[in-house]
């Protein structure tokens, strides 16, 4: 059978396209199409990028005494560059490039300004009320930060609780009404902890219907809330709210 003319014409076109594709296949450089080649080049570029943060361990080589001080204090988990900024250049040429040293008052509140989302127990202040205008470092050594004198107020550390309580019906109660803090707590707060009420009877001293306390709301401590402890339903720092 005769091959129709159409097929012959079209085959020429198809052949040209195939030839073109095959030609491209051999003309295109491997760096463009070979995955192994372009990947290797890309990884190489990625690795060659400049390191700007030198990393903590290298600082110790020269600044041993600062490290000795820092590693015993509350800032022991901080890297040097958390405060001093990227310092890889300084490690290459220590005299020519000096790292950043924050001395202004606005720096420390980045971490220590009071913010209700910050975890409980994290030391926080209200910068506008806390010795305004004085740079933090006049009183606190950032490499071994401790309060210059033992704080008189619990709120110095327990700001969140203090703020909550200040808005609550317990606002006028002292912390010491319910907690007893050993003096040592002010020096090693996590090892020596203050006491907490342990039983229903503690709250009942004011809130039982037989209590001599006048203003507190009264319940029958013997039956109210069955076997549960008071603070399983009432938050003592904000009572009246579930």
């Amino acid at each position: 059978m005769r091959i129709p003319e159409q097929i012959r014409r079209l085959s020429v076109v198809v052949l040209i396209i195939v030839a073109g594709l095959l030609l491209t296949r051999y003309l295109v450089p491997a760096s463009l199409v070979k995955q192994r080649v372009y990947r290797a080049a890309s990884v190489k570029r990625e690795i060659a990028r400049e390191v700007r943060y030198a990393g903590g361990s290298i600082c110790i080589n020269c600044h041993e005494e600062v490290n000795e001080q820092k590693k015993k204090g509350y800032h022991k988990t901080l890297a040097c560059e958390t405060c001093h900024g990227p310092s890889a250049k300084h490690t290459e040429d220590p005299s020519a490039v000096k790292p950043f040293a924050p001395r202004e008052r606005k720096f420390c509140p980045l971490c220590h300004e009071y913010n209700p989302s910050r975890p409980t127990g994290f030391p926080q202040i209200t910068a506008t009320a806390h010795n305004p205008l004085k740079p933090c470092i006049t009183c606190h050594n950032p490499h071994d930060p401790v309060p210059p004198q033992v704080p008189r107020e619990c709120s110095a550390c327990h700001a969140e609780i203090a703020r909550t309580k200040a808005l609550s019906r317990h606002a006028l109660l002292e912390c010491t009404t319910c907690h007893t803090a050993p003096p040592k707590h002010k020096q090693i707060p996590r090892s020596v902890r203050p006491t907490k009420p342990e039983s229903r009877e503690f709250c009942a001293k004011c809130h039982d219907k037989g209590s001599p306390q006048k203003t507190a709301p009264k319940v029958d401590a013997a039956t109210h809330g069955e076997r549960y402890l008071c603070w399983e339903c009432h938050y003592p720092h904000m009572p009246g709210e579930a």
Binding site: V33, K34, Q35, S42, K44
Partner: peptide, 17 residues
């Protein structure tokens, strides 16, 4: 035919930094 050899080669040995 153009693409497959490249893809196959890459799967065998990927780049070593």
């Amino acid at each position: 035919a153009v693409a497959a050899p490249a893809a196959a080669a890459g799967k065998e040995a990927s780049a070593r930094p």
